[in-house]
Amino acid sequence: MTKQDRAVRTRLALIRSAAEQFEARGYIRASLAEISAGAGVSSGALHFHFANKAAVAEAVERAAARALRRVAARGRGGDGCALQRLVDVTHHVARLLCADIVVRAGLRLNAEAVAGRVRDLRREWRECVHELLAEAERRGELAAGMPPHRSSAVVLAATTGIEVLAREDPGWLARPSLTDLWHLLLPCVAAPHLAGALDPAGTGPDHADPHADGEADVGREADTADGALEEPGRAGLALR
């Protein structure tokens, strides 16, 4: 293993350990000593990669943002019914949140603006939902009287509420919970001719890998730009 490979693996271990600490103890109570110990490295190794706790939190948030954007891109760039792709994206996001603590911690840090709100993941989710619903309107998939801005408000309120509730009870992210949600929403949002054609349980395998099709496990990929390590001790640049 090369020196750069070891540095990448150390950085990833620190990001995952930080996510575990932020998730269990919160940003304020989590300490750099606990983060380095959880990663199995010295405090000096941590400071080689991150200047302070805020920089570690920024790296966790950025890694989560990368994974979530991959999921959103699958829906935006897909073919077929836009409403079905929206349903599928919510299931993909839920599975990713269940499977990856870095994604969970990063989303929570972002919601609490711990890292200084370089990016706004909730805004990006709003844009993803609105874009898919605008496409659904162009395709004639929305019910009469449900323009994108109205249907977006309903979908966003429901999905954001589930994500918040899941912080205390992960069962809210289970497939049956989301399926029940879409059973209620689709008759209100979808055009009548789509009744029976949409699958509220999502159109993937029952136990689909949340990291499949390009949704890489953020705990296994380098938190880098174009594969190169960031300059040690600096917080990374925001994803644009």
Rank of each mutant, 00 (worst) to 15 (best):
L32W: 02
A99F: 11
H130I: 01
L184W: 12
V56A: 11
H149I: 13
R119F: 15
Y27S: 00
R240L: 04
F22S: 00
D88M: 08
D88I: 05
S31T: 15
L142T: 00
D213W: 10
L237Y: 09
P187F: 11
A222E: 12
L229E: 14
P148Q: 07
T10E: 10
V189G: 06
V189F: 08
C128W: 12
G38H: 06
R138F: 06
A94W: 13
A222C: 15
R29H: 14
G26K: 10
A225G: 02
E127H: 08
A51N: 09
H92L: 15
S42Q: 01
L68V: 14
A19M: 01
A105G: 10
G106C: 12
P205V: 00
P205D: 13
Q84E: 13
T2C: 00
L86N: 05
S43P: 13
R74N: 05
P147F: 01
A222I: 09
A59Y: 14
G214V: 01
L185N: 07
H91A: 04
G40D: 08
I15G: 06
A72K: 13
G80Q: 13
I15D: 06
T10I: 09
A64D: 07
V154R: 00
D5M: 05
E221F: 01
A115S: 15
A63M: 15
A113F: 15
Q84L: 02
R76N: 08
G202P: 04
R150F: 06
D209S: 09
A235R: 13
E23Q: 10
S151T: 10
D180M: 04
A37R: 13
G233Q: 09
S151L: 00
E168A: 14
A82Y: 02
D226A: 08
V103A: 14
A157V: 04
K3N: 09
E23P: 00
Q21E: 15
A39S: 04
L12S: 09
E215H: 03
C81M: 08
L32M: 09
S36G: 04
R150S: 07
L83T: 03
L32G: 03
A136G: 08
A190Q: 02
L68P: 02
R138A: 12
G80P: 06
F22M: 04
A195K: 11
L121M: 15
R122P: 02
H92D: 15
A7W: 12
P148C: 02
A158E: 03
P187M: 05
G161T: 01
